[in-house]
Amino acid sequence: MNHLSERVTGRVRGRGTGANPATRFDAHDRAAVDDGWGHEDDLPPRRTELRDERSRSIIARNTSPDIGFDRSINPYRGCEHGCIYCYARPSHAYLGLSPGLDFETRLTARPDAAAVLERELRAPRYVPAPIALGTATDPYQPVERDRRITRDVLEVLQRFRHPVTVATKGTLVTRDADILGEMSGAGLARVGVSLTTLDAGLARRMEPRVPAPAARLRSIEALARAGAVVRVMVSPVVPGLTDHEIEAVLTAARDVGAVAASWIMLRLPYEVAGLFEGWLDTHAPGRRDKVMARLCEMHGGRSYSAEWGKRMRGEGPHARLISQRFEMARARLGLGYRLEPLRCDLFEVPLAQGAQLSLF
């Protein structure tokens, strides 16, 4: 059954968007109308709903030629962080939910992820290669504090000596510094911490439930101190809004222990474009035309192009300028060194619980 989309106008406290736009799969639409009985500001905060999902498989595969991994795990569907620009928002449409407010408030957890992962790693024909943890939604969003699904997954990967990369904006990643530090020391793990801006006010508006930039810098420092290999991800770069901070972000991350850096241009697939433009109208109206004009310049006159090899960077003079600035700053700060590939030769299937050792 298609989800009847609820259009919410205005702001919802603590959330990235107040809208629940219809999706390309919806057969029907529904619009909210002011009936004169009250004001949206009187509404209580939208609470997070979390349901469990039993998984038949947990390792997702991809064949995209411009992505550096072929398998990933996402312990959660939807993300409470509420980043308005999140390119994964449209994935909620496949669940019959909206990429808008639903994506931030109607989440799905996979509590059996670790058990399913162990079963898949024990398959006789399984061939190890780095697993990317948290590619669509953040593995360290707030609900992870209680659910600990990401921690369970990491413990399985550690026992199997399986390589893993982690991408997050959440400071909860430092809870697992013991695992990530040990695995990094063995050439089995790398951690990427996303830092979009150093402006705490802008970050709060753009990424409402993500820890403040200063807190993320402290996470990088704590991970590095524990022996983890940490990469700062300037992701996304928003042209006309955050691109002037590239050098400052890289410097701040380098100073607390990051050893590598990467970047991605703002991506606005499907419903994300309308959500982000609505956010600009509310939170940065003076920048709206400039930001959207630069994005359109980079994508052949459209706000986004999904063409492989170009979707992450864009094209044209401004895209090249951002790329050149990033590369120059990365080299100057010593963040340009190429990390060694993660090791796959240490992979070993441990003895199953209750199993007996062979006599021969």
Rank of each mutant, 00 (worst) to 15 (best):
G192H: 13
A224G: 14
R218W: 06
T197S: 12
T196K: 15
S184E: 03
G187H: 07
A214T: 12
D178G: 12
R216H: 04
D178F: 09
P163Y: 03
P211Q: 12
L133Y: 10
L202N: 06
I220V: 11
A224F: 04
A224E: 05
V143P: 14
V164M: 02
A189Q: 07
A214N: 13
S194H: 10
A224N: 13
R161Y: 00
V164G: 02
A200C: 02
V153P: 02
E221K: 12
E144H: 06
K169M: 05
P208W: 10
T137Q: 09
A189C: 12
I179E: 01
E155G: 07
Q141I: 08
V143H: 11
V191G: 03
R151E: 06
P213N: 08
R218A: 15
A214M: 04
D152F: 03
F160C: 01
L198S: 10
L195G: 00
A167S: 14
I220C: 09
I179H: 10
R205M: 10
L154C: 01
D178L: 10
T174C: 02
R216Q: 06
K169E: 05
R205L: 07
A224I: 09
D178N: 09
G181V: 12
I179W: 06
V153W: 07
V193L: 11
L217H: 05
A186M: 09
R175A: 12
L180S: 08
A177Q: 12
A203V: 04
A200S: 15
R190W: 04
L172H: 14
L180W: 09
E207L: 01
L223E: 07
L180R: 12
L188R: 10
R147E: 08
E221Q: 14
I179P: 08
I220N: 03
R204I: 03
V193K: 15
A226Y: 13
E144L: 01
I179A: 01
G201H: 15
T197L: 04
R209S: 10
V210I: 05
L133M: 11
A186Q: 11
A203Q: 08
A224Q: 11
I149T: 14
L198I: 06
P213Q: 10
L202M: 05
S219Y: 09
T196R: 15
G227F: 05
V166Q: 04
T197E: 03
R216N: 10
V210K: 13
D146T: 14
V191E: 06
T168W: 04
A228G: 11
